[in-house]
């Protein structure tokens, strides 16, 4: 049951609905009555440069679900590219498409994956499926910017499998869409490390959903998660994080944090940080807060003569900044920071 399988079979009953507990806040079946027609090929000549072009050794582009160059899985061996820009560009209007890609990292290699989901059309339905495998000791840093059209429905799902001692670090930043969901399902290897961070900045009637499931099956793996969000107008942010520690996964250390600011009367945040634990030698925790900007901090800034809108902007930027600062890749971090600042300013 997924958007992908509904697009493949043409059967709306395959769409996840509110009755599926993992989709209760992002109901697709209630939204999509009939599945739209398949998207035509896009116009490659109309492609604008991607935000990460200057940082990448290589660019892989999907236009309306079609890959523009190359085929088959991307395999990163010791002598392959170190930084890849991965672009999913949606030029469609009222149509649907599906993109899929496998990425495999051979043992010990290091890759930076700079991913963008770009909306250049309207009212489209886009589905992305990624399959990412990290060999023993491999390291992957994934930074994702999601910029879909206001009236788009977009779902991106990544299945991630980590070999032993592998290190996976991800930061996803989204501004939502009519419905937008970014899902990561990760299976740990022995003593592997994962960082799954997220930011959602939602305004208007946009909705954004950051969902993750992390499974610990082996000894000594660690998971750290920090997601922060700001919602205003009538936007709605969703965070769902599940950490499963199966029997035998002793020595697991898992920490999850989700913090959100509600900046307007009619905005909404729904969150479900979940722990499912079947092993006893573990240390797991989660923290979750939802609230408004700190009145005391606002007062302090007002006292210093900073106008209210500017003070709010600064505080919000600082709030989200904590997540952005965790991006290791300097160039990507700067772009992510600018991306956040621009979207926060646009909202004011």
């Amino acid at each position: 049951m997924s958007l992908g399988s509904a697009l493949k079979t043409g059967d709306v009953a395959e769409l996840p609905s509110r009755r599926d507990e993992d989709w209760r806040w992002t109901d697709l079946r209630g939204l999509i009555r009939t599945l739209p027609a398949a998207s035509p090929p896009g116009d490659a000549a109309a492609l604008k440069p991607g935000p990460f072009d200057d940082l990448a050794d290589e660019t892989v582009t999907f236009l309306n679900g079609r890959r523009l160059s190359g085929a088959g899985p991307v395999v990163i061996s010791a002598d392959a590219s170190r930084t890849i820009a991965l672009r999913f560009v949606n030029q469609a209007h009222g149509t649907a498409h599906h993109s899929a890609l496998s990425i495999a990292l051979e043992p010990g290699v290091v890759l930076t994956l700079l991913e963008t989901h770009e909306g250049a059309g309207a009212a489209y339905v886009a589905d992305v499926e990624l399959d990412i495998r990290l060999g023993e000791g491999a390291r992957l840093q994934r930074v994702v910017l999601i910029d879909e059209a206001d009236d788009a429905i977009a779902v991106a799902t990544a299945e991630v499998e980590l070999g032993s001692h592998a290190d996976f670090a991800q930061t996803a930043l989204t501004r939502g869409a009519k419905r937008q969901r970014f899902e990561t399902r990760l299976r740990h290897g022995t003593a592997a490390k994962a960082r799954l961070d997220g930011v959602y900045l939602l305004g208007g009637e946009r909705r954004g959903d950051l969902t993750s499931e992390v499974i610990h099956n082996h000894l000594g793996a660690t998971t750290g998660q920090l997601t922060k969000g700001c919602v205003r107008d009538q936007a709605r942010g969703v965070f769902q994080g599940r950490i499963i520690v199966n029997r035998g996964a002793d020595g697991t250390d898992a920490r999850m944090g989700h913090h959100a600011l509600i900046l307007s009367e009619r905005a909404e945040v729904d969150a479900k940080p979940e722990l499912e634990i079947y092993a006893d030698d573990v240390s797991c925790s989660h923290g979750n807060t939802v609230g408004a900007l700190d009145e005391e901090a606002l007062f302090y800034m007002a006292q210093r003569g900073i106008p209210d809108p500017e003070a709010r902007g600064l505080l919000t930027e600082a709030f989200v900044g904590e997540v952005v600062d965790r991006i290791e890749h300097e160039g990507a971090r700067d772009i992510a920071r600018a991306w956040v600042a621009e979207r926060l300013r646009a909202a004011q």
């Binding site: 009367e265 909404e268 945040v269 940080p273 499912e276 634990i277 573990v282 923290g287 979750n288 609230g291």
Partner: peptide
């Protein structure tokens, strides 16, 4: 086995909801 499944639904800009959970042996 020990599981924690908290749902939080905030639809108010002046609400402040805080949740913390730990699992240890």
């Amino acid at each position: 086995a020990a599981h924690t499944v908290p749902y939080i639904e905030a639809r108010n800009a002046t609400a402040r909801l805080e949740h913390e959970a730990t699992t240890t042996r």
